[in-house]
């Protein structure tokens, strides 16, 4: 089996199923021991945790590819990104349906009044166009350059997502900071690459001028 078929036939389906793991675990809890004394809080926190984790996992694809040199990794990026969006949607649904039970006026008040919800909702809004334009057809229609520019919104979504988490917890709890640190490394990698490219381009320009 060549590398392409290995990815297509084995690895992609495997990763797809693995990403459903948290949901499967939730289903097992639902069927068996339940969600504990505060089921609404449990469900919302659990889905939020996995939303931010998948966002970080999707953002890790490019740096890991750059460091390991394994080009095939990019073929998992869309799936992982869409899973992040999927868990964000579930997190938001648990808030809308279970926590607020479609109390739209309360939800609107929350979005306007509670900063951490404003920030979280903004992150969600930024992810919508990315999910819509994730298909191959859309990449073609937009053109690769424009598509890439648009999809840089994910950096902002990552920052807002981590901010949402940080603003939500009480006291000085370390978990949001760990997530923020991981995000900083992932974004920092991109900044470093960008700087290196920019200085290489400058050097090339100088050299070609000297040659001329």
């Amino acid at each position: 089996m060549n590398a392409d078929r290995l990815i297509r036939r084995v690895l992609k389906p495997l990763v797809f199923l693995l990403c459903l793991g948290p949901l499967a675990w939730l289903a097992w809890r639902a069927a068996g021991p339940g969600f504990g004394p505060n089921p609404a809080e449990f469900l919302n926190r659990f889905l939020g945790d996995w939303a931010i984790r998948f966002l970080l996992i999707a953002l890790a694809v490019t740096p890991v590819r750059g460091i390991t040199g394994w080009a095939g990794l990019v073929r998992f990026r869309r799936m992982l990104g869409l899973y992040a969006f999927f868990y964000v949607c579930l997190h938001l649904s648990s808030y809308t349906v279970v926590d607020q039970f479609f109390d739209w006026s309360a939800i609107l008040k929350d979005i306007l009044k509670r900063n951490f919800i404003t920030v979280g909702m903004t992150a969600f809004a930024l992810l919508i166009p990315l999910a819509i334009t994730s298909t191959k057809g859309m990449v073609k229609r937009l053109g690769a350059a424009r598509w890439q520019k648009l999809h840089r919104l994910v950096y902002a979504a990552g920052i807002l997502g981590c901010g949402h988490y940080f603003m939500m917890v009480k006291g000085n709890q370390p978990e949001p900071l760990y997530h923020g640190a991981i995000l900083a490394v992932l974004l920092g990698y991109r900044v470093a690459v960008w700087f290196r490219r920019a200085s290489a381009a400058r050097r090339n320009a100088r050299e070609s001028m000297r040659a001329a």
């Binding site: 639902a30 069927a31 339940g34 969600f35």
Partner: peptide
């Protein structure tokens, strides 16, 4: 909805 989703959890 989901069998036992609401049950209490023996901790």
């Amino acid at each position: 909805v989901a069998a036992g989703m609401i049950g209490s959890l023996p901790l």
